[in-house]
Design a protein around this nucleic acid. Structure first.
Lengths: 350, 350
DNA sequence: TTGAAAGCGATACCAC
DNA sequence: GTGGTATCGCTTTCAA
């Protein structure tokens, strides 16, 4: 394994010149640059990032703190981040900070303090106060995907607005009995869920339906949505519309409805938020966000902060796009589809 | 930010003694060890991993090369790896090597060569020949989760056996027309899929059903299984049993069956491989593997290789456990459940 | 049991 | 444009 001095010697130049030639910074004649590059290539020279980091203080590595890997949104964001980092030649150190685990504690107590990165991207982290404190104490730029930090750059959709529009979509179709499903299953609310519930409540209020607003708590997952919907739809008086906190919950609700023989959208309209990869298969009407792009954007924001130490924190609130598929319909059309469903086994939504 | 010389000075010892005291290697009197530790704590001293790595050659970092993040199996393995690494104080560098992407190419060409890790864990990587060559050339221990490398440690389930037992489960229930769904959708087979198909074919052969064996190609995903099953089950002569390449495909098939009014398990038995987190919700009979534990085991294996440079590569083939839920039943029971399904909207499987 | 000094492999300043 | 040299922060002989 050859070092830069080997390259320098074989190229007949000094270490400093070799370094300049390879890093591309500083004056080097084109001739020697070519020569050095050729030698480096022939030796398959790979610079030691440790040595370089030690002297420059820059690691060319980005840390990603993320609470879940198995949830659609998080996996997509992470893939977006990784893709953008690969393009830039930057490494990615993963910190899976699952809430309530010993691992998360150690990440905040020990791992982050090592500063093995030039900057951090926090994805849907929702840090406790003492965690946030740690995060800022590190003294490296932080970009959040989903969040509310005032001190860091944040990128995400306008959750309140998305839920409001989802709800409005149903009220404009004539629905009056609309439930919001998901969130609040654990004592500590995820703030995203909270914001979406608020958006729903505001839209219900605008439609004069505050009295009929109903929040069904559930875990934010497909089985969670399924379980909650089984209860909700099995009750005597069931809603004609469901706004789900996210697509996973929405899809769970659709599956529950089908199993209960409730036609979608004939007897029940369901709208989600996400545009999950399964959304199309379930013909789910939803408010689309593109987490992969959010991941890429986070890298771009971080890059800017890295280039210019005192760049102002940017707050990017993207707007979700309504995609109407076949899980929502006018409230009047009730039952018409249900019949065909029982006969053919396929309702009109596919 | 204080370095080890600050600690040394304030503790009234030399750098060397401070280093020994903190790293715990070499002779240090208990008294000075305590003193140094106290000073280090008061200064919130964090050693520079770059400096340490530069001199020791060890990074205390593990690279994980993984082709997907959004698929259940991969996300679970990754979470298992991360948890085990956090316990050991080791960092995790993520390389998302999505097949066919420019990013994957760069990972193998550039990123891995930097050797910013003491060892690698490859998860379901299925490297091309030239990629494998690169991998071994790095000269760092590699552990594979799922795979067939002779030169590296491998951990995974016996896929052939799992598929064979899944199939046998159906034949023992009297099924004769059993299709295998999934895999082979792209020209390049994933070898896992291939092995599972082989296991199915062997079991069919053992049951004297070779003539009726049928492989339905599909993408290995829930929508993929759904689409394939819609075609398969819509045909004139449909099977009474489905062995799916994995649970995601199996669940897609169940959803398709329900939509077509085909009762599960009344008219159709479905068995998967995985024990996916949604398996319970769909009452899916499956052969369980626990990817999270495979991730942990990979870390343990790697740790052993790291401790003892010439430890023999270990090949761990775990056995999947059959979990019988309610997606499979005797072939005779056909139609009985379908009727109740149509009446109540809920079949017997929940 | 401790300390002085020699690197690890690069970068960057400063003469030339 | 180029080369010598100090330096980054630590570990590790080797002597004392």
């Amino acid at each position: 394994m050859s070092g830069i001095s080997d390259v320098a010697r074989l190229a007949g130049v000094s270490k400093s010149t070799a370094s300049r030639a390879l890093s591309g910074s500083g004056y080097v004649s084109e001739k020697t640059r070519l020569k050095v590059a050729a030698v480096a290539a022939s030796l398959e020279y790979v610079p030691s990032s440790n040595a370089a980091s030690l002297v420059t203080g820059r690691t060319r590595n980005v840390g990603v703190v993320i609470p879940y890997l198995h949830r659609w949104f998080f996996a997509e964001v992470l893939e977006g981040i990784q893709a953008a980092l690969l393009e830039r030649g930057l490494d990615l150190t993963l910190y899976d900070a699952n809430p309530g685990t010993e691992g998360r504690r150690r990440i905040f107590e020990d791992f982050l303090a090592r500063k093995r990165f030039d900057g951090l991207i926090a994805v849907g982290l929702e840090p406790e106060d003492h965690e946030l404190e740690r995060l800022l104490k590190i003294g490296r730029p932080v970009v959040s995907v989903v969040g509310t930090d005032a001190d860091a750059s944040v990128i995400g959709i306008d959750d309140n607005d998305a839920a409001r529009r989802a709800t409005h979509h149903l009220t404009s179709l004539g629905h009056e009995h609309i439930a919001f499903v998901g969130g609040g299953s654990s004592p500590r609310w995820a703030s995203v869920d909270r914001r979406r519930l608020d958006g729903y409540l505001e839209a219900m209020s605008e439609a004069g339906l505050t009295a009929r607003a109903q929040h069904i708590r559930s875990e934010v997952s497909l089985p969670g949505g399924y379980a909650a919907a089984v209860d909700l739809l099995g009750a005597r008086s069931r809603p004609t519309g469901i706004v789900a906190v996210c697509d996973e919950v929405a899809i769970g609700a659709i599956i529950a409805a089908r199993r209960l023989g409730i036609g979608v959208p004939g007897d029940l309209s369901v709208v989600g938020i996400d545009d999950h990869k399964y959304a199309e298969m379930f013909a789910l009407t939803t408010l689309q966000q593109v987490p992969r792009e959010q991941g890429r954007a986070a890298v771009e924001l971080l890059e800017a902060q890295l280039a210019d130490a005192d760049a102002e924190p940017t707050h990017l609130a993207l707007s979700a796009r309504l995609i109407v598929r076949a899980s929502t319909g006018p409230v009047d059309a009730q039952h018409s589809v249900m019949v065909s469903d029982a006969r053919t086994g396929i309702d009109g939504s596919v």
